[in-house]
Amino acid sequence: MRANARRTTLSDIAQAAGVSVATVSKVVNGRGDVAPQTRARVQELLHQHHYLAPVFRHTEAVVSPTIEVQFADGLKSYVAETLEGIIDSAAESGASVVISKASRAPHWARDLVSAGRRAVIAVTSVYTTAHLKELARSGLPLVVLDPLHLPDSRIYSVGATNFAGGLAATRHLLSLGHRRVAYLGGPATAVCNQARMHGYRAAMEAEGAQVPDAYVRPGEFTYETGLLGAAALLDLREPPTAVFAGNDEIAVGVIETARARGLRVPEDMSVVGFDDTSLARMASPPLTTVRQPLREMGGAALRTALRLANGEKVESHHIELATELVVRASTAPPREATPAP
């Protein structure tokens, strides 16, 4: 092959053999679920094109599958703890993991197949119809961890009991005697945010507590949303005595705004977060929050991706793990009330 010739890809081999890229990938990775005649044809083409990957593997050889893990935002505490679960589970399973930022380049999924990836795990990333079609053409299975939108029937996903978590967080504040409780959340269209907000509203309604429109404010899952949202709440004629924040970063922003206004948490305002990342434990005061089992969610996503990569049947398109309220020092009864018995 000439030094300046374009490197042959799995897509080139698949086109020449008249098969899918996924079938060529199976041959390259020593998978057994390929017809003998097809395998022989693909192997001959790989040899003719001087494909650089090792192609003549015994089917009984142990192959370490590689899973692509993509995330859209910065490597925040939430993402980092989720990745720990993915990596730990991969080590236990003998799989390899490649971590990258979500790509919007043309044929990105085909490039992943050419690089030997067997499945994709997306951490809260948003995949459009075009992305799903690209994945379907490439034969790469997709697992979304904590999806921002309602999962497509073609997508497997892993999440947590967000509604139950919102319910538990708000009930905790109500049990302390709070009635003026606000919710500062993430994007209004995000499924996880909607579920947490509906849990909050359900608890407030069951208790007969009023929810003024100004008490519910969507935003982003960021520290800045907490800073600005808390400022707007404290400027109200009747500010809340407690805030349920859609995640720990928002909650820490609320605490900082309260501090800047000369207020103390929890004496003057109680704050509850969501996720139970390391940020919640390092906050001052340590944050009462709803624990998402982030490492366990990462592990479940990895195991699901491996099963799909191996052509195994996965019973459910969506796995939901339980949340748990973790009470620390950022919540207390309001000054004018005593906690319910």
Rank of each mutant, 00 (worst) to 15 (best):
T161A: 15
A202V: 02
R201N: 04
L10V: 08
P293N: 00
W108S: 05
V143Y: 11
A115V: 10
L145M: 12
A337Q: 14
H149D: 15
S64R: 11
E296L: 11
P147I: 07
A283K: 12
G139L: 03
D268N: 01
G298M: 00
T277F: 04
G185L: 11
L150P: 10
R7Q: 07
A260S: 15
S138T: 10
G139C: 03
G199R: 01
Y200C: 07
R171N: 15
R110N: 14
R171F: 09
Y215E: 08
T241N: 00
G311W: 13
F71H: 14
R217T: 12
V123M: 00
E60Q: 09
R295E: 15
V326N: 04
A300P: 09
R307Q: 15
K133F: 05
E92R: 14
M204H: 09
I86H: 02
T82D: 06
A340R: 15
M1D: 01
P151L: 10
H317V: 11
Y215W: 14
A283Y: 14
G299L: 04
Q48I: 08
D146V: 00
A95D: 02
V62R: 15
A53H: 06
V243H: 14
G273R: 05
A17W: 07
T288M: 12
T331S: 14
V191K: 09
D88L: 04
P293C: 05
E205P: 01
E207N: 07
L279K: 05
L142C: 14
A242T: 13
V19G: 08
V79W: 02
P141V: 00
M204D: 08
S278E: 11
P240C: 09
A119F: 07
D88M: 05
E84W: 00
F56V: 01
I319F: 12
K101D: 06
Y127D: 06
A232E: 10
G246D: 09
L234Y: 12
T225N: 06
E84C: 03
V326A: 02
I121S: 06
Y127M: 12
A301Q: 10
A230E: 08
P266L: 01
L306Q: 03
V326K: 01
G186R: 05
E220V: 06
T331N: 08
A3L: 15
V271K: 03
S284H: 06
A245D: 09
E60I: 00
E256Y: 04
V120H: 01
A214L: 05
Q70I: 06
G159H: 14
V191E: 08
D248L: 14
A16Q: 13
L167W: 13
T82W: 03
E68F: 11
P54E: 06
G139E: 03
A130T: 01
I13L: 01
A102F: 07
L263C: 10
V27L: 11
A72L: 13
E249C: 05
V97E: 08
L75S: 04
D235P: 01
E44D: 11
A130H: 00
V24K: 02
E68C: 15
A17N: 11
L228Q: 12
A301E: 09
H58L: 10
T241Q: 01
V252Q: 07
A119Q: 01
Y156R: 13
H47M: 02
N29V: 09
